[in-house]
Design a protein around this nucleic acid. Structure first.
Lengths: 119, 119
DNA sequence: CTAGTTATTGACTGTTTAGTCAATAACTGC
DNA sequence: GCAGTTATTGACTAAACAGTCAATAACTAG
């Protein structure tokens, strides 16, 4: 129909996920995301709209179907809970669903992952 | 000896603790701390040196002698683990000591507090 | 009262932040 | 080819950021 995208959206989300998981939400700047994805500013904003929206897509991809408590995905969940969930209901909803998947061990699984930051 | 301080250091640390616990480390700006403490920029920096040092004093006060896993103190511990511990050894050391105090229930206690962000 | 010391103030700096946009490029349908 | 559409680029903006500093104020010792 028109000029095609030069990137694959899923790949970009996966690259952004790595950056958010490693740095956390606030500490991960747009420049960090540009570096991680190889995109230019305008392209990132055209495709995703805002930092918060990028994170929402990252989180949905990580915690949606096929969520299996990989370390990186737990880091994203912890970040979402600590930095966003209390003031962002859609993010909180995604978190709730993932936590239901974890069942009664949710607290221990998350706490154990938190403690991994000491090693 | 000279001009006396117009504030009590322990009070200021307690006020800063509330702000850090509520907002997290990165999301808590110096302006947030000035608002919370009522101090002026120069006074805060003269007394504590840097944002990171203020946080270290807050954390030491919260997790040192008399640490009793109050909600606010757990929030500070979680913040320290997630945002600072992996790249700041003195902060990590304070965390380790508090976690030893919590014993084998540490992971569950921290995870449970994390999940409270959903309510 | 004076000299010495330390605390307070708030204007200032340079950097980094998230986000915007006009110009241009790359495509498709005709 | 041409017209229409969407993607890319990177310079740009305004706000927020952590941290500094010269001027001044408030104290103590003598």
């Amino acid at each position: 129909m028109a000029r095609p995208r030069a990137f694959n959206e899923d790949t970009v989300i996966a690259q952004a996920a790595e950056a958010f998981a490693r740095l956390g939400y606030e500490a991960c700047s747009i420049d960090d995301l540009l570096l991680a994805t190889g995109l230019q500013r305008g392209s990132l904003y055209k495709a995703f709209g805002s930092k918060r929206n990028i994170f929402e897509q990252v989180l949905t991809a990580a915690l949606g179907a096929g969520f299996e408590s990989r370390g990186q995905d737990l880091d994203l969940l912890i970040t979402a809970l600590k930095e966003l969930a209390s003031e962002d209901q859609p993010i909180a909803a995604v978190c709730r669903e993932a936590i239901a998947t974890l069942g009664e061990s949710a607290a221990t699984v998350l706490g154990t992952r938190l403690l991994d930051n000491l090693e």
